[in-house]
Design a protein around this nucleic acid. Structure first.
Lengths: 245, 245
DNA sequence: ATCGATACTGATTATCCAGTCAGTATCGAT
DNA sequence: ATCGATACTGACTGGATAATCAGTATCGAT
């Protein structure tokens, strides 16, 4: 079926992102994308000059998607600390369907591919900047005091990266376990943020983080009743806490 | 020149690791490795059944090297806190010549290659376990108090991973700047460790960490006592060598 | 010195896949 | 309805490269 260029282009990019996610940058073939779309390989070459450019564009596309979500979270109304938690939640890998596999794969690729590298760096900088922004907002609002939002963002961002890598790479296939690991990582992160930002213990871990699931996923998945508990025994709030108690 | 199998094998693995480091897993060719060694491509197929197995073995080889360094650092004498700092220093990327590019590349590959994944997971687990060990040692020695060494290791390990990724990926080519970034990251890490382990501020950051450079750089190598070891399928499967067909 | 076993070569083959291109289908405009 | 422009097809080609294999060199042992 004939479509206009813009529409087809984004359709191709989405398909390419999907293929990259399941095969990796290095093992993605033009034919795979074509097969997923049910089109000819020629079509892809019609819209994209080369495979490299297609991959780069797809990566850029995926990055753009995430950055839009980020700026939405930053621009949201409400309590600054809730916004901070929302951004951190966006950053962390969701239990499923997160962008993390692609980012990790892109890191490896970026080491040897300048085009991907610049996108990867921009993405990284944007996340850390976003974090810094939301920290600064909270500072201006008087919710916390942080002398060096940019530095704090770098440190917290690094922690999220490390936790994200761990969750993404060392995960099993047991959903139950993954949910617990995710919840524990989140708890660690929020606790670290409290320390970093001189907040009272529990100030972030007990912020209702319920907006999360809605932003990350498309459907209101299972409700994980009583998902996991931190070392202190607090019930953790991930998932669509249907009723924020 | 004709060599015995074990020697040639490790020589090949070292060369492969070097090629992977500069080209990445996805773009490493048999011919690249052969060229680096100044041999034929046939030789590589003589010693390794397939390219995939060669890459997996090379990765395993590199992991082994780092883990030997790790266990040396853990087993060293001296002040437990110095040992802790030494392990963290080993973990962080050096200004140049670190293993980080390969690990990052391997992460991406591990997402889609079970053989690499298990090695990657073992490596990660070993590092975190090593950290936990050295924390526990220090705890037993009374240098610090930590109720949950394993958890602390996971958290600090994640932070190192994040910092390592940042240093490795977002580095420029300016050595001066890199040294500063590295030093700052190290400082952040040690400070985080102090907080995590309930140490007085400055207790780690002011530990003499000068031993570092000597450990990371290419000194005349430790005796390769791991050479003939076949922890996995090291026995060569060389069909055409015997000519009995 | 001879001989078999082992290590290695390099030319060749087989395969895979990005990119091309001549031709076809579908659109919107007149 | 016609026509030109645009989107698309699918068979094909060229190049790259993993893997093969018949043959050669080198070793150690007798």
């Amino acid at each position: 079926m004939k479509k206009n260029v813009a529409e087809r282009r984004t359709e191709i990019l989405a398909a390419t992102v999907a293929v990259i996610a399941e095969r990796g940058f290095g093992h993605t073939r033009i034919a795979d994308v074509a097969a997923r779309l049910g089109t000819s390989t020629g079509l892809l070459h019609y819209h994209f000059e080369s495979k490299d450019l297609l991959l780069a564009a797809a990566f850029e596309h995926a990055a753009q998607r995430d950055l839009i979500r980020l700026s939405q979270a930053i621009g949201a109304d409400g309590d600054p600390l809730e916004r901070l938690v929302a951004v951190l939640d966006l950053y962390l890998p969701a239990v499923e369907g997160s962008s993390w596999p692609i980012w990790i794969d892109a890191w490896g690729e970026a080491l040897h591919n300048p085009a991907l590298r610049s996108t990867s760096q921009r993405l990284d900088a944007a996340w850390k900047q976003g974090l810094a922004d939301v920290i600064e907002q909270a500072g201006g609002h008087g919710s916390l005091h942080c002398a060096d939002p940019a530095g704090a963002a770098r440190r917290l961002g690094a922690l999220v990266d490390g936790l994200g890598v761990d969750l993404t790479l060392n995960g099993g296939d047991d959903d139950e376990v993954m949910i617990q690991r995710q919840a524990r990582a989140r708890n660690w992160l929020l606790t670290a943020a409290e320390v970093e930002l001189h907040l009272a213990p529990g100030r972030l871990t007990q912020v209702p983080g319920s907006a999360r699931r809605d932003q990350m996923e498309q459907r209101p998945t299972v409700h994980p009743n009583d998902i996991g508990r931190g070392s202190n025994g607090d019930a953790l709030h991930i998932g669509n806490a249907s009723g924020e108690e």
